[in-house]
């Protein structure tokens, strides 16, 4: 059974954290993952940097660019993660744009993920329909989940469709926006969380984009099974480095 499913079975109110692999320093990847697990984080999204991250705001654009300048590549990331399962037992997800995966070779990419013990992938620019037509069988062969996004603009009908074809969790984008930390949620966002929560989907939901502190985390988990923090954590890494991650996590919950 996939570690992601197990995590949702054993625990409520998950906290998932995103970071750009290769940032702040090229070789920080394993240290960040270890420190996040030691701080009690439930799931980690490892960002595969891309030159043109369309769905990301300034913070993640900057960390991606820095990571690439540091020398991060798909091959480099897989090398860094080679023995990660000796020390890490929480679910690990790779989040990245589709073009670098195509160049690496989709089959080879999935194969390496499977060898390392990656549990799932999030590809913001691979639409659910295209995935199902052209790529699902490869991902399935390697036991990899592919998680999809929904947004405040996604119709109920489409949410039902995505729920039906989803594994792992549904990534609920909190607002109509690119990634980025915000201090509080607006009324219409809370209404959207409620609307989707009331749909009683079969797939767990995690809310991401705009989660930055305990207030937004707590608001999110009232209507979902967990929350994802990205930009706020990257800003923290920029200022505090990789050794005080525990203090960041304890400021959230």
């Amino acid at each position: 059974m996939n570690r992601i499913d197990n995590k949702f079975k054993e625990k409520k109110n998950l906290l998932s954290v995103y970071f750009s692999a290769g940032y702040p320093q090229l070789e920080d990847t394993v240290t960040i993952i270890k420190n996040l697990q030691a701080s009690g984080v439930d799931m980690i999204e490892i960002g595969l940097p891309f030159s043109d991250p369309l769905a990301d705001g300034p913070t993640i654009q900057k960390s991606s660019t820095k990571a690439l300048n540091n020398g991060m590549t798909t091959e480099k990331l897989f090398t860094q993660l080679e023995n990660i399962r000796d020390q890490i037992d929480i679910p690990l997800i790779i989040m990245g744009y589709f073009n670098p995966m195509i160049q690496f070779g989709i089959k080879k990419f999935c194969h390496r993920c499977n060898e390392i013990g990656i549990d799932g992938i999030i590809i913001p620019d691979l639409p659910v329909e295209v995935y199902h037509e052209d790529y699902k069988s490869v991902f399935d062969n390697y036991g990899l989940y592919n998680m999809f996004l929904i947004t405040p603009q996604t119709s109920n009908e489409r949410i039902r469709y995505i729920d039906k074809v989803s594994n792992g969790f549904i990534y609920m984008v909190s607002s109509s926006s690119v990634t980025g930390a915000k201090n509080t949620f607006q009324k219409n966002q809370i209404e959207y969380f409620k609307r989707v929560d009331d749909m009683k989907l079969k797939t767990p939901k995690i809310i991401g984009f705009g989660i930055s502190n305990s207030e937004t985390y707590n608001a999110a988990i009232r209507y979902s099974e967990g929350a994802i923090i990205g930009s706020a954590f990257i800003k923290f890494l920029e200022k505090q480095g990789v050794n005080k991650i525990g203090s960041f996590v304890s400021s959230i919950r």
Partner: peptide, 9 residues
């Protein structure tokens, strides 16, 4: 159309 879900509508 390789677009993020945000642009789907």
């Amino acid at each position: 159309a390789f677009i993020p879900e945000m642009l789907y509508p």
